[in-house]
Write a protein that binds this DNA or RNA. Structure first.
Lengths: 170, 170
DNA sequence: CTAACTGCAAACAATTTGCTCATGG
DNA sequence: CCATGAGCAAATTGTTTGCAGTTAG
């Protein structure tokens, strides 16, 4: 919702430059679209939005750009099922998603304890955590009038990491 | 690990019958393969194993069967990256997966604290946790000669990973 | 100037589907 | 019997790539 006018270089464009990427017209557009996106668009969606700004863009370029940006660590790829990859800027901070099973709405939240926990688990299993994926699916509790459902911020949950038990099938 | 000879109906075959599915020869074979699998085979792998038992089976049938069983809630579909869907029987109990990013090997583990944590998080956001998804991706720590890292349950997955590295993502 | 980029269409890989024949219950 | 299922190949879908022409730096 930030007003990124055509003049200003978008946040992602700046990152591209930092990474020494050639800033072509189409990349600039895609970067802007990505910077402005507050959701998790798939390539097709990105393509639409980009084409709205400049129609001289092909899907192939969107695919290539998105892949490049992911490799550079600028974007993060998500798989919410449905067969298509979805992307979001990585500098939105580390956060997770809770999907409202009734409305399909996605709520973002962060939680350091979770990271600590799974890091500990991985370590316990003899691994260094490279990345991970977490999605919660929930039903809203119909009680409190004000939901505050926009962008939750959760910090202090009590449980702490210590106990991960390996399980072998049998 | 039980010796399911041709005589005995496999666990999944029994479930199929309970669900009123017509038990054809190929379904019986696929059901058996699935019941005996201790890893998370993709369709191609299932096809191979099934064909070994009875070569009159086509991939299309495997796809159709696996989809059907998933709809019936007998199988669970997993996406460990690599582009192919992988399946495992649902009655194997609640557990998570840690994927070795180098070998593609999958390690299963369970952790009660994790459930407690995410339940608390969901609650804090005003939701009741319905379900969730968690996958860890890690690199094995090869340093200390501790030896306690060999927790894997299937070598088949390593093979799959190698095969899948045609040109996909990792 | 030239290595990097783009568009386009063809190539691909995973999965689905139309159609015809086979078969379980 | 006949509704279901199987086989096979053609069709779809999401994504990648070869090639020839463009362009940023």
């Amino acid at each position: 919702m930030v007003d990124d006018s055509k003049e200003t270089a978008s946040a992602i464009e700046r990152l591209c430059i930092e990474h020494g990427l050639k800033m072509t017209g189409q990349r600039r557009v895609i970067a802007r679209v990505l910077s402005e996106a507050e959701d998790h668009p798939d390539v097709e969606e990105l393509y639409q939005r980009a084409a709205e700004i400049d129609s001289r863009i092909s899907v192939a370029t969107v695919y290539r750009t998105v892949r490049l940006l992911e490799e550079k660590g600028i974007l993060e790829r998500r798989d919410f099922g449905g067969g298509r990859a979805r992307y979001e800027s990585r500098d939105n901070g580390q956060h997770y998603h809770l999907i409202d099973v009734d409305t399909g709405k996605v709520i973002e939240f962060e939680d350091e304890q979770h990271v600590a926990l799974i890091t500990a688990i991985a370590e316990k299993l003899g691994f260094n955590l490279v990345s991970h994926r977490l999605e919660l699916f929930g039903k809203k509790r119909e009680k409190i009038a004000d939901g505050g459902a926009k962008k939750g911020q959760s910090d202090k949950n009590a449980v702490l990491a210590k106990k991960a038990s390996v399980r072998k099938r049998g």
